[in-house]
Design a protein around this nucleic acid. Structure first.
Lengths: 102, 102
DNA sequence: GACATATATTCACATATTCGTATATGTATA
DNA sequence: TATACATATACGAATATGTGAATATATGTC
């Protein structure tokens, strides 16, 4: 892997690497959602949610379409869900190892 | 998914989300490596490499053992490689979508 | 013990990220 | 056009992250 490739991958991972965005992607995996829908998930202000979504859009993970006054968001890269499920497995593995040491 | 779970997952993703650490994990997927081995991959100083490794260790993704004067690093969480391969697929998907628009 | 090699830590600084408040924009409806 | 609702952007402050230079620590060899 070269440097440019590594940077592109790291940028994609960064786009995921925030608790609020993790929650958002998990929710979007169950269907398209408006900004307000997603806002209810996280304890954050509306502008904050809007910016997190913008980040996901810029990374190309999420797309949007306008329906009346709302902007509906769609998970354009379902493959990124694998990265999420993979963190769950990793967490289990880390916990298990720590338990073995103790 | 609750907030604590989302934070734990995001922390794990953050540990991966840096070009140098992406390169390191890719290299460690092919076998255990010393700090100096990994240093050759990335254009960074020795202290910088050391701290990136520390970050991976604290996240539980990498373990270390001392062999003589060297510290050998081992990928303890091969499951995290899925997150890496998944970014490759996502990058392809994003590029394809952009090409379709153009 | 003196010295070379391998790795870690401290420090100071630059940059990036995240956030809420305030404000602007877009859309629908009366 | 006036008003309400949904979403986006600008701004400034707090915090986190990344970095190299200098230095400290650990290990092996002579």
């Amino acid at each position: 892997m070269n440097t440019a490739q590594a940077k592109a991958r790291a940028d994609l991972l960064k786009a995921l690497a925030h608790p609020t965005r993790v929650l958002m992607l998990d929710e979007l995996s169950r269907g398209d959602r408006s900004v307000n829908d997603l806002r209810r998930l996280a304890a954050a202000s509306q502008p904050t949610i809007s910016r997190h979504l913008d980040r996901l859009k810029k990374a190309g993970i999420v797309t949007e379409r306008r329906v009346g006054p709302r902007v509906i968001h769609h998970l354009a890269c379902p493959c990124m869900l694998q990265a999420l499920s993979c963190t769950l497995e990793a967490l289990k593995s880390v916990k298990k190892r720590q338990a073995d040491i103790v």
